[in-house]
Design a binder for these strands. Structure first.
Length: 562
RNA sequence: GCGCCCGUAGCUCAACCGGACAGAGCGGCGGACUUCUAAUCCGCAGGUUGCAGGUUCGAGUCCUGCCGGGCGCGCCA
């Protein structure tokens, strides 16, 4: 429709002296529906060139378009309005045609082609296996998974990747923590000590690392290792077997948690592999060769001041061990070299400062860093009874993602993480989330879907047939409004995918549910005259398709009964 | 001190590339159930978009400065 109007407008504009030859009119959907279905601000943009008031140009344009004339099956009216807008109103026949196309597309309605033939990699979650996923990981996971979904709806071939490191200091401490608990399981009388945990004093086994992991899951792992292992590890030996057992158990938990959210990763990328295939050292050498590195104080530095940073950055510590930045760069080189057209990283706000180094590293190594996009999301605050829930990783008093899902359910968890713009802090109201009522936006959406299913079931029981319905019978404001909302779906999905902002889709679906529920309230289906009932049922089917496809893209279930 | 994000209705948040009268939900107030799911609907109230300048036909949106909040600024990840 936009291209049709644009060509018509360009054609008309040839009569207007002073129009720039490359002028490309812009169209937008007016916020206020009284202003029509589509509007152009061409008159305002041309005011300078034509040296006439915008309002007058708009009137001349509208008149010229009406004289042309425009296809009456598509455009019902053209009017100048406001300070210089030209407003277009769609013909009902056009709506009907689009609605038939919607129903014909069915489950494919909303699929786009912008990513056709292209491959995208979305990296998310990427929590090291040191403990259960927290609420913070949850936002990352759901955001990443939904961005991946949206890219898939745009036609991309999408790979979902989880990057982790099981070789660092964190994991060593994890192994030692399990080992200490294990020793205490075997010998309950073993000596104990007090350590400080974020201000509170906690009693732990004497061998427990000062910065060890205090969560109860560590003790669980130790106990299970003791109870289930056929050849139990030497309690006083090397910590490695404990680390391995912990990693295995924790990873299994993480996968189970992700599975509850409907998240299945395609690939798990172990940082260690970048050492095994020498990629880390090759990256370092390449950076050296390109003149971006120097040695000082026994460490290897990355000249990040050359990119405008205040300080240079250490890539290899005096100990000979790389900082995480170097493998990060090598990892992104690997991602680039795997030939993806789009590479999206989902990061929490605490990692904002790190990614510029990675991008600079990529450029320094001759890779196209523009293909890499970093989506930073802000933190989550849980609110219960109007007050924030206090969490501390150190004291292990955080709420896990599983706890959250146990309390409010998987669908609510997913949807709440998606409702807000990623770069806004997310306040997760547990009381609202738990409420199974219309106040809860998830239930509101699902209820609309279930309601339509109920109507269709009822109609099917009586053998009612709504095929070949006459769309022109639909003239009620609620019917027209619903149709117009439904037809926006492909554009909304495309926009949400392009911006990597799932909340745009989530907010839109609420609009769909509202429009449907209003239609439902005003227009009966079953019991009306057959031809009207058939047309309305077609409209209800269309609404179900949009709700269903939209919820699917967001990863929320689509119940047929509630 | 420096960098990034945020500041919009009582609360939580929207607002596509700068567009028309800044919109939803919750909460508040007032109505509606012989009905295909009342987990619903209809109506009302509620705003100097943190403050001050600037850019222009037009600014919540862009620029500058300030105020307030979050997150970073490690040879931790």
């Amino acid at each position: 429709m936009k291209t049709y109007l644009a060509s018509a407008l360009v054609e008309v504009l040839t009569q207007f002296d002073g129009t720039p030859p490359d002028f490309a009119p812009e169209f937008e959907k007016p916020k206020n529906s009284e202003h029509g279905d589509l509007a152009t601000n061409a008159a305002m943009q041309l005011a300078r060139h034509l040296r006439r008031p915008p309002r007058r140009i708009a009137e001349e344009l509208a008149e010229a378009l009406r004289a042309r004339p425009l296809d009456p099956a598509r455009i019902a009216s053209v009017e100048a309005a406001g300070s210089g807008f030209v407003n277009f109103r769609f013909a009902t026949e056009y709506l009907a045609e689009e609605m038939r196309a919607l129903l014909a597309a069915g489950e494919a309605f909303g699929r786009g082609e912008t990513g056709k033939g292209k491959r995208a990699l979305v990296e998310y979650v990427s929590a090291n296996p040191t403990g259960p996923l927290t609420v913070g990981h949850g936002r990352n996971a759901v955001l990443g998974d939904t961005v991946a979904n949206l890219l898939a709806w745009s036609g991309y071939d999408v790979t979902r990747e989880y990057y982790f490191n099981d070789a660092g200091r964190q994991m060593r401490v994890l192994g030692e923590s399990v080992q200490a608990r294990y020793q205490a399981v075997i010998d309950p009388d073993a000596p104990r000590k007090q350590i400080d945990a974020g201000g509170a004093s906690v009693e732990v086994p004497a061998s427990f690392p000062e910065d060890g992991y205090l969560g109860a899951y560590i003790t669980d792992i130790a106990e299970r290792l003791h109870a289930e292992s056929e050849n139990p590890p030497d309690p006083d030996g090397d910590a490695a077997p404990f680390k391995e057992a912990a990693e295995k158990a924790i990873f299994a938990d993480i996968e189970r948690t992700l599975d509850r959210l409907g998240i299945r990763m395609d690939t798990y990328f172990n940082e260690r592999s970048l050492y095994e295939n020498d990629a880390v050292w090759r990256a370092l050498q390449a950076l050296r060769d390109a003149g971006h590195c120097y040695d000082r104080d026994g460490a290897v530095w990355f000249r990040t001041t050359a990119f405008g940073k205040e300080q240079d950055t250490v890539l290899v510590k005096r100990s000979g061990e790389p900082t995480y930045r170097l493998p990060d760069i090598a990892y992104h080189v690997d991602k680039c070299d795997r030939g993806f057209d789009r590479i999206v990283d989902i990061l929490g706000a605490d990692h904002i400062a790190t990614y510029p180094d990675v991008l600079h590293g990529l450029r320094a190594l001759g890779r196209d860093a523009d293909r890499v996009e970093v989506m930073v999301h802000q933190f989550v605050t849980l609110v219960r009874g109007g007050a924030p829930v206090k969490m501390s990783t150190r004291r292990a008093t955080y709420v896990t993602l599983d706890d959250l899902m146990d309390e409010v359910g998987e669908d609510v968890t997913r949807f709440f993480f998606l409702m807000r713009s990623p770069n806004a802090h997310l306040e997760f109201d547990l009381d609202l989330a738990k409420e199974a009522s219309d106040k809860n936006p998830v239930f509101y959406l699902q209820y609309a879907h279930a309601r339509i299913c109920s109507i269709l079931r009822k109609a099917a029981e009586t053998g009612f047939c709504d095929e070949g319905a006459d769309w022109s019978l639909l003239a009620h404001p609620a019917e027209i409004a619903l149709m117009k909302v439904l037809l926006r779906f492909p554009e909304v999905l495309a926009q949400a995918a392009a911006a990597r902002e799932p909340h745009q889709a989530a907010n839109y679906l609420r609009e769909v549910a509202v429009a449907f529920t209003q239609f439902y309230g005003h227009c009966r289906i079953i019991g009306e005259a057959n031809d009207l009932a058939a047309a309305r049922m077609q409209l209800a089917r269309a609404a179900r398709i949009v709700l269903s496809n939209g919820l699917q893209a967001l990863g929320v279930s689509r119940p047929e009964r509630m």
